[in-house]
């Protein structure tokens, strides 16, 4: 018994020293990225509108645009990104192990992830939330119309299932879950009439609706039963790098607020408005220097990637995934998209 205890404690000591070594050895991600000449970015294995490869082998999506914005800011070229497709389970380890430097993979910002597992969330590029889809013929107009015994189709083993359970418990309505492993199976079951409603994240609902045999026969209910703020993540403990990613994201969104986009930015360079001068990085502004970046960092982002509105239109609106901006409209236009001022 004593020997076992001794061995366990020795192993623990070994682990602690090993971890200690890891935390003392710090290198600046920003410097490494500049030296390497590319941004290492983790994306999904295919999520419509967020990160996806096209037939030509290029990555597109609103999450991908975050990576491209960071590359444009740091290296002046939005194409200098190396994408690593990651499964949901390995994404955080890949970030911690240094396989990637930015994780932009529709990751929900939660307390546990931010505080407990050595990650730093730098902002939100999409506000998602769980919703319900029903047949318009069912007469259900709101989640309040759900009756006892409602059959609900959803994916198994995700937070979606837990949110659904919480929701129905709080509402005091009995329900019958019909769960499947794959999103495609859920959609097929719902389309075939095996359940009354289908629940998943609203961005997913809109994308799946396009696959139905008659998309117009289905509506997404207005209520949202969970908060899913999705945003880019970096490693904890490298403040400079977190700042670069955070402000690349912020300037991308603020450019929309001031009407600066990829086609008019060249004329905006001479703008008299000090806020716009700061956004485009005109002569005399100090934003670039403060971030250890080039003076033209923000110009490069907007010129090469476009502003948030352009990204949204290209990836989510024109593709029919979420034509309506909803909560992702600017705070000035009835949404909740609000970023700190770039100054």
């Amino acid at each position: 018994m004593k020997i076992i205890k001794l061995m366990i404690s020795m192993f623990a000591v070994f682990l602690i020293t090993a971890c200690g070594n890891q935390t003392t050895k710090k290198t600046s991600t920003l410097d490494t990225t500049k030296k390497q000449g590319f941004v290492k970015c983790g994306v999904s294995q295919g999520l419509p509108g967020f990160s996806n490869a096209d037939a030509g082998g290029n990555w597109t999506g609103i999450d991908v645009d975050v990576c491209r914005a960071v590359a444009a800011a740091v290296l002046g070229d939005a194409t200098k990104v190396k994408y690593t497709p990651l499964s949901a389970k390995e994404r955080f380890t890949a970030l911690q192990a240094g396989d990637i430097d930015v994780l932009s993979r529709n990751t929900t910002w939660t307390l546990e992830r931010d505080a407990a597992i050595g990650l730093e969330f730098v902002g939100v590029n999409f506000y998602d939330g769980q919703g319900f889809m029903v047949r318009s013929s069912s007469g259900i107009k709101s989640v309040k119309d759900f009756k006892n015994g409602t059959k609900v189709c959803t994916n198994t083993g995700t937070t979606t299932e837990l949110n659904m359970a919480d929701f129905f418990k709080a509402a005091g309505v009995t329900y019958e879950p019909v769960v499947f492993e794959k999103a495609d199976e859920v959609v097929q079951a719902y389309d075939a009439g095996r359940c009354d409603t289908y629940t998943t994240d609203k961005s997913g609902l809109a994308a799946q609706r396009t696959k139905m045999s008659k998309p117009d026969d289905h509506i997404v209910l207005p209520e949202t039963i969970s908060k899913e703020p999705l945003g880019p993540v970096v490693r904890e403990g490298d403040g400079d790098w977190a700042d670069v990613v955070r402000w690349s994201l912020n300037v991308w969104i603020e450019a929309e607020e001031y009407g600066v986009n990829s086609s008019n930015i060249d004329s905006m360079m001479d703008s008299k408005n000090p806020a716009i001068q700061r956004i485009v990085g005109a002569e005399g502004t100090k934003n670039g220097a403060a971030l250890n970046l080039d003076q033209k960092w923000s110009y490069n982002i907007i010129k090469q990637v476009g502003n948030y509105a352009e990204s949204y239109k290209r990836n989510l609106a024109d593709t029919g995934i979420m034509p309506d901006r909803g909560p992702n409209a600017l705070w000035t236009k009835g949404g909740i998209l609000y970023v700190p001022p770039v100054r």
């Binding site: 294995q45 295919g46 999520l47 419509p48 509108g49 996806n52 490869a53 096209d54 037939a55 690593t84 497709p85 990651l86 499964s87 389970k89 390995e90 890949a94 495609d184 994308a207 990836n315 593709t319 029919g320 995934i321």
Partner: peptide
């Protein structure tokens, strides 16, 4: 499951392209 995209992975990727 570990993020390598072999044949089936690429098919999965392609079918989620908008």
């Amino acid at each position: 499951v570990v993020g390598l995209m072999e044949l089936l992975g690429m098919v999965n990727m392609a079918k989620t392209n908008p």
